[in-house]
Design a protein around this nucleic acid. Structure first.
Lengths: 274, 274
DNA sequence: CTTGACCTTTCCCTTGGGTCAAAGTGTTTA
DNA sequence: TAAACACTTTGACCCAAGGGAAAGGTCAAG
């Protein structure tokens, strides 16, 4: 009969851990004194404790270990739990591999540029979104704001006429076409809570859901949006994605004739693993 | 000005998390109503929140992220933190790779044998241990118990004569020699708290510390110790170690003329990565 | 004015123990 | 035999990053 500290020394497991394992029914002392509550262990319990430690190094939780050590558990169930753990570990490995790559990229950037990019790119999934949209052509990226304003006015006003009380943000959608820097076709869409009838000028439809949307947030005037696109496209390429849809601009903070420095725009590109 | 739930929807971060980030000074609302305590956010805070999310996906803790986002932190400090994270991730990868291998080995074993080995092998580091030891020859592994008993008697009795009150466990040390199955040289050592003078028959010295000791626990009579050795040696080979020292047997539960089924023996092999 | 949606703070819960603290035990020594 | 000291017990609080729920205050629409 060993006292808890002797057994702890023998097994190199702390007394605190042994008491926890007792409470969790993982490893009960062979004997507990009725009077004093003292726990007494036997060297014969070391195999069980060792098995616990092995499963712990495999990354199992104490709760799962309790299940694994249960005498009634079949080899099949054990295999299932091992396979589950196997899959889990593969996930962990993949996640950490990606993290490692990203940390390395950040480090490279820091070495090259001396500073980190102001654009942080993330991915998210985006649900389908009912919109009221107009289509137009932008002659050039400079001074396109008045044209956009007219297009959004058309869309939002039409939505109001159709009884929409609460409109959401404005979204610009650039459909995939041959690259060109003049006469770019663009869609100006107003987010609305539900579909409405379409008219000649304004189409109401569901902006499709996107499984993986890479996006970044641009703060400031629209004429510097180009650097956000650069950062976003560079990120997409470096992270092994490819663009698979229409890019979008979501105008999160915009006030007509307001201070352009306060504008906030989310730039989005649907992607999928290359 | 956005209410917390709007900002949460926009950023896809739960209100609970936003309140936590407020409390941790990671992301304070632009405005908090004095009367009601309502938090009001601005879309202009999305870049900062995005940067928080990026660092979170890299695996940084919120506390570290707070440091990284601190305006006063230099590029050098950021680089240092990234490098630290890099090293940490490498460790994680290595650990999970090993875990994966071990889970796979367990699965293989389960497929082949239909059950898991009764021997669980672990490694630990072992400190130097003062002992009083005698040396002898074992003619054969069968019926060696009386010889061992005499040797241990000699060692323990000598220790008592030298004033040792509390002796520890008995240890048998098999020094590396050419493999042979008869006339095996062996050392029977009594663990003692401190060195004592040596005599003709009993040597007192420090059993050397071992950085990495592979060990397993055997329960039962000594004549089945062979399977423990088999399991241990197989483990050592499969896990990419090689034996680098004298194997030891530590008698954790032994009673002369007791029930051999109750014996508990720890079998140890010093190893290092091959 | 009421209702329902939304906001606040506060408390408890999660893992695997570490770290005290108060109080009771066991052994040893004077 | 009693004090000293080492050991044990339970209990409470702590870590990270929130999730969940309760109790009560606020806001906007009908």
């Amino acid at each position: 009969m060993l006292r808890i500290s002797d057994f702890a020394q023998l097994s190199r497991v702390s007394t605190k851990a042994l008491r926890l394992y007792d409470r969790l029914d993982l490893l009960k002392p062979t004997h507990v004194d009725r009077q004093t509550g003292y726990r007494y262990y036997s060297a014969a319990q070391l195999p069980r404790l060792n098995r616990i430690l092995v499963f712990k190094t495999l990354g199992f939780s104490l709760e799962r270990i309790a299940q694994l050590l249960d005498a009634d558990v079949s080899a099949n169930q054990i295999r299932a739990m091992l396979q589950l753990k196997h899959a889990e570990l593969l996930q962990h490995l993949e996640r950490d591999r990606l993290r490692l790559l990203q940390v390395e990229m950040r480090l490279n950037e820091l070495e090259r540029e001396g500073t980190m990019s102001t654009y942080d790119v993330l991915t998210k999934s985006v649900a389908a979104q009912p919109v009221a949209a107009t289509i137009g052509l932008i002659p050039t990226y400079e001074d396109c704001e008045p044209i956009f304003n007219r297009m959004f006015d058309t869309a939002f006003q039409y939505a109001f006429q159709q009884g929409i009380k609460q409109c959401g943000y404005g979204i610009a959608v650039y459909h995939e076409t041959k690259l060109r820097d003049r006469d770019i076709p663009v869609e100006a869409a107003a987010c609305i809570p539900e579909l409405i009838p379409s008219s000649d000028l304004v189409f109401s439809y569901d902006l499709p859901a996107v499984e993986t949307m890479a996006y970044t947030i641009h703060r400031g005037p629209f004429d510097t949006l180009g650097s956000a696109y650069s950062a976003l496209l560079a990120w997409v390429e470096k992270h092994g994605y490819r663009s698979v849809g229409s890019t979008r601009e979501l105008y999160l903070a915009y006030e007509r004739n307001g201070d352009p420095a306060q504008y906030v725009t989310e730039v989005q590109i649907p992607v999928e693993p290359a």
